[in-house]
Design a protein around this nucleic acid. Sequence first.
DNA 1: ATCTTTGTTAACCAAACGGTTAAACCGAAC
DNA 2: GTTCGGTTTAACCGTTTGGTTAACAAAGAT
Lengths: 197, 197
Amino acid sequence: MTTEEKIFNAARIVFQKKGFAGARMQEIADQAGINKAMLHYCFKSKQLLFEAVFMNAFSQLAPQINEIFNSDATVFEKIRKFTHSYISFVIVNPYLPPFVIQEMNNNPEFVMSFLNHKNKPNPTPLLAQIEKEIADGIIKPIHPKQLLLDIFSMTVFPFAAKMMVKGIIQLSETEFNEMMEERKTSIAETIINSIKK
Amino acid sequence: MTTEEKIFNAARIVFQKKGFAGARMQEIADQAGINKAMLHYCFKSKQLLFEAVFMNAFSQLAPQINEIFNSDATVFEKIRKFTHSYISFVIVNPYLPPFVIQEMNNNPEFVMSFLNHKNKPNPTPLLAQIEKEIADGIIKPIHPKQLLLDIFSMTVFPFAAKMMVKGIIQLSETEFNEMMEERKTSIAETIINSIKK
DNA sequence: ATCTTTGTTAACCAAACGGTTAAACCGAAC
DNA sequence: GTTCGGTTTAACCGTTTGGTTAACAAAGAT
């Protein structure tokens, strides 16, 4: 593993745990097992190191989203595939959703500008497909964007607000994990149940 | 307005916008229009000032939650009331959910300990009620905690991850607000639609 | 062998940070 | 009008922060 990779991995861990403002360059250096000056030798500044970590995190989430946007499956199949693959992925990378959401809220101008250039997922085809299946009588009338938001909400929220969810619904870590396993399929059934004719 | 109130309101604005780590005592003082020393005169330390703001924020959200936990309405009525009143409340206080969720994730030990002492909402009665209505044949079989999580997810997520939602689904501020208005009723219909027999 | 480039470090720096102090302010009581 | 308590401020302090510097070491290139 190169020094640059060691720094990057250390930075990912620290940034995802503490956020941009809470992260310390010294802590990243310690985590990487190298001198603090190397951070600036390799990545110029805290801001640039953070941007590298953030873009990497976001680009890991993008494929999961494109899976629901770009494929030729039916809407029901897309919902089943997306929820299953997204939850599977996020169980292994639990820090990703809260990190991305937190930094997008704290730093909207940077993120929105970068979102306009790179990796911009395009929901338009899926929205049109939903409208077509409504017209074909497969799906009950519903606003397509609301449906999309329902799917994202049910899938992402438990990971984005894990501590709050555990606190309010009173779940142990084991119970939480068991529920997420079950959600790989239950979310799709709930959604489809509510929109199928 | 007393000085203490001016400080508290300023602190709420700054903490909710930048989080604990990103907030600066000087910025809070400027926002309040008073000298920085007054912050420590009134609130001792940054940590204590933050705790005051956080507990106030959380205690504002608690009534919305207790509304779904403690009342003698049917499950369907509770779902309708909760989603409507929570979204109405949060439209006026949009910074609250991301703030609470972010700080709960970043500071779980402090929050969980405080959650165990104060304002601990108790979901047990509602969970039992859901199971009873399943047994009575009113609701389709579903794990009650999953149902509860579905409701929270659909209601809270769009506000917790507003920037991400706007970016991915490609919504203007106006479209977002219109969707949230519609969600006051559409979430309950979606959920009820999927669980009613 | 010597020079140049690249990787690495300890020591250092100025600015920003949370927090303290001592003095000034100010209305009320006497 | 002087005293006295709480309130408010300017100035200050020690520490931490992101970032820099200069020296050094290893590895090719000439």
